[in-house]
């Protein structure tokens, strides 16, 4: 579970400052997808960045279980991401030189370099292959990103975000580059994996209409001008 407690974030804007997040209160529970929607510039991605520890808010707390992400130093925030947070980016952001399987294995290498869990490479490989099968990419482990469709690339990104079994999954506009059918498939996959794994998933999208047909997206939070429009979800 991740909890935003009175989080405010401002950015410099010319001589003054613009408020990106204005006293945000939000709870993202385990085992469910919380959809954060709103127009461009409403503060959705800023909230995601704060949750990932990429930006420090001006005030407030961001609690991941008992740890306040908002107070972590950059190195500690990086350690938190590689151990407990999964991130899915808007454009999948796969590394072009890596095969599909390596996109997942790289997470293990990041952990190993930082003195993480130290799983053996063979175990990691088996785990990665199983996860790829789970997201519908069985047998595609040797392909490179340019050999995949947009939907397949986003599935790889989801598998990469889940390979280290994070407790929180942060998803940034995962369907913006997909057609409606592929978009629905990808979000359905996210909903299923969230339930199965019990992760607290925060999904940012500006295009909720295309996801209306996806079951399991009951928790929808609207945002505008840095404020949440649905306080009932606090």
């Amino acid at each position: 579970m991740i909890t935003f407690d009175d989080v405010t974030l401002t950015h410099p804007d010319g001589a003054g400052r613009v408020t990106a997040l204005d006293h945000v209160h939000l709870v993202v529970p385990d085992g469910a997808v919380t959809v954060l929607t709103g127009p461009s510039g409403s503060g959705k991605s800023s909230l995601l960045a704060v949750a990932a520890g990429l930006v420090r808010p001006d005030s407030g707390r961001v609690l991941l279980d008992d740890d306040d992400v908002a107070r972590l130093a950059p190195s500690a925030a990086a350690a938190l991401r590689r151990e407990r947070v999964g991130v899915v980016f808007q454009q999948a952001n796969l590394l072009p030189s890596l095969t599909v399987r390596d996109q997942l294995l790289v997470m293990g290498e990041l952990g190993a370099v930082a003195g993480g869990r130290g799983q053996r490479r063979r175990e990691l490989r088996e785990h990665a292959d199983a996860l790829l099968a789970e997201v519908g990419l069985d047998g595609l482990g040797r392909r490179r990103p340019h050999q995949l469709s947009g939907g397949q690339r986003q599935r790889v990104a989801i598998a990469r975000a889940l390979v280290h079994a994070p407790s929180v999954l942060l998803v940034d506009e995962p369907t913006s580059a997909l057609d409606s059918e592929r978009a629905a498939e990808v979000v359905e996959l996210l909903v299923r994996l969230t339930r199965e794994r019990g992760t607290a998933t925060l999904l940012v999208t500006h295009d909720l209409d295309r996801l209306n047909s996806v079951p399991g997206l009951e928790r929808v939070v609207r945002m505008s001008d840095g404020r949440l429009d649905v306080p009932a979800l606090r």
């Binding site: 190195s75 990086a78 350690a79 991130v87 590394l95 072009p96 997470m107 990041l110 370099v113 930082a114």
Partner: peptide, 19 residues
């Protein structure tokens, strides 16, 4: 640079990327 930024966002330490 974009790939390095992605790796950092995924949790890679600057030290490991430099090494």
């Amino acid at each position: 640079t974009a790939d390095v930024a992605v790796l950092k966002a995924l949790g890679a330490s600057t030290r490991s990327l430099v090494v």
